[in-house]
Design a protein around this nucleic acid. Sequence first.
DNA 1: CGCAATCGTTACGGCTGCGGATTGTTCCGG
DNA 2: CCGGAACAATCCGCAGCCGTAACGATTGCG
Lengths: 116, 116
Amino acid sequence: MAVELRPSQALRLLHELSLAQVRDDAPDLSQRQLAILLSVYLEAPPHTVRGLAARLGVTKPVITRALDTMGQLRLVSRRRDEADRRNVIIQRTVEGALYLERLGDLVVATARALPR
Amino acid sequence: MAVELRPSQALRLLHELSLAQVRDDAPDLSQRQLAILLSVYLEAPPHTVRGLAARLGVTKPVITRALDTMGQLRLVSRRRDEADRRNVIIQRTVEGALYLERLGDLVVATARALPR
DNA sequence: CGCAATCGTTACGGCTGCGGATTGTTCCGG
DNA sequence: CCGGAACAATCCGCAGCCGTAACGATTGCG
């Protein structure tokens, strides 16, 4: 067990985070998009459309569309799997890593400012 | 300073939370809706449409629409301010309190399970 | 070698939320 | 008492995401 947190603190944390997200008009990702992004960056590659769909419990078009959107934002990129050209490998990008780095820092800073 | 958390832990926390949210097909609120809900439940009343709009930095129709949606979900309710009948007072509900209670517990449980 | 299976994408109709402008009601100052 | 200000709701056209059902490309089994 690592992070001790009371329910009231948890809700305050979510509150501050949601306010921060809403205010700065960054291209706020949907819950699904964020889940995909975090899966790609935190779990071991390779990542495929089918694998992500199974991981999230959603259909494949959901993944394809989310990748379209996040690809335009340069948060992820796609590449054909040359070993099996039916597959598409989802890859990380510098912009995506930066996005998550700033997001992580925001959470840390917000958590640190919580009343005890 | 209360809650110590490293960036990698923060991202893992978000990852687990987003996966949980995506999987159970609960009526997942948008970021804005969540921000409104948390403002209503964590900040001191009374809450008005105008006040919430200013708090979030969005226009009033955004608040009205979000209240429509969350009102149908019974997460909040609306009442005319009898003192100034131009105002609408946003009120908490049992269902809303329960929703946030479960959400807070989920965050706590997820945080507790994070690797040190 | 052909044919079913797999994989990702696209097409379609529908739903929801958005911003901006407008409306109807209520309040208040002159 | 009345005209403007304040407030929330509604209307409008638009953009994004949804689920289902197709589709084209690729693979590998029989």
